[in-house]
Amino acid sequence: MSRSDVLVDADWVQAHIDDPKVVIVEVDEDTSAYEKNHITNAVRIDWKRDLQDPVRRDFVDQAGFEKLLSGKGIANDDTVVLYGGNNNWFAAYAYWYFKLYGHRDVRLLDGGRKKWELDSRDLVEAVPTRAETQYTAQAQDTSIRAFRDDAVKAIGSLNLVDVRSPDEFSGKLLAPAHLPQEQSQRPGHIPTARNIPWSKSANDDGTFRSDDELKEIYETAGVDLSKDTVAYCRIGERSAHTWFVLHELLGQQNVKNYDGSWTEYGSLVGVPIELGAN
């Protein structure tokens, strides 16, 4: 798989903006951003309302995902291009989620909404209409999803990559600094985790660094890429961004995203926690 199979630039999107088999999807941390404006013909997926079970802390099930994508007018053979704000955090989360349910052709817009805006490209208010489809999802591919027991078992054996900011890793902050500090019960990180913030893999404009630069970042940080890797952050969105880097850009097949992440691990009773920097 090459980089262009999973990542497209703004010119590519501009050239396919009216292609009926390309569905542009905005997924933002700020779920109201789409209402202000969005890329022409883009539909919205709300990561809170559409992708989470309304009662339990978990994803919508296979039937729920089928219903969601059918309603959005996305067919199994469509190319889905995801983009969003905040350096594509939630677009990458949606990318991983689409792969979890087996969508064949998903791509990220490099740099997401931010680069599109900084380049002063057109954004519109018009909401497109797409005919409903009969989408068929696969069972969840748990080879790319880690659960809490996987995270505990990984201590001292697998690569644990904590992609939060250094201050969250060390225990100084409980959450990203644009959110009130009221998340897990305890600060810190999973013992033996390496702190490689997601942001090291992106340029200021949100685009991904080159493959060679990305490899160097992980190797310099002491991650043995031949071993299985579990990536985590606070709720699994930034670690989906790192999962995208490791699994999709660098082609490492043995990488899982732990979406329970620190809000789950940091509230578990009895598990080991470390404080301080690497």
């Binding site: 905040n86 931010k114 900084l118 900011s165 250094p166 201050d167 644009h178 942001s199």
Partner: peptide
């Protein structure tokens, strides 16, 4: 957009 960088120049957060 505004990014917040820590004392070591590392990205901590960003908001529109």
């Amino acid at each position: 957009y505004v990014r917040l960088l820590d004392g070591g120049g590392e990205f901590t957060a960003e908001v529109p």
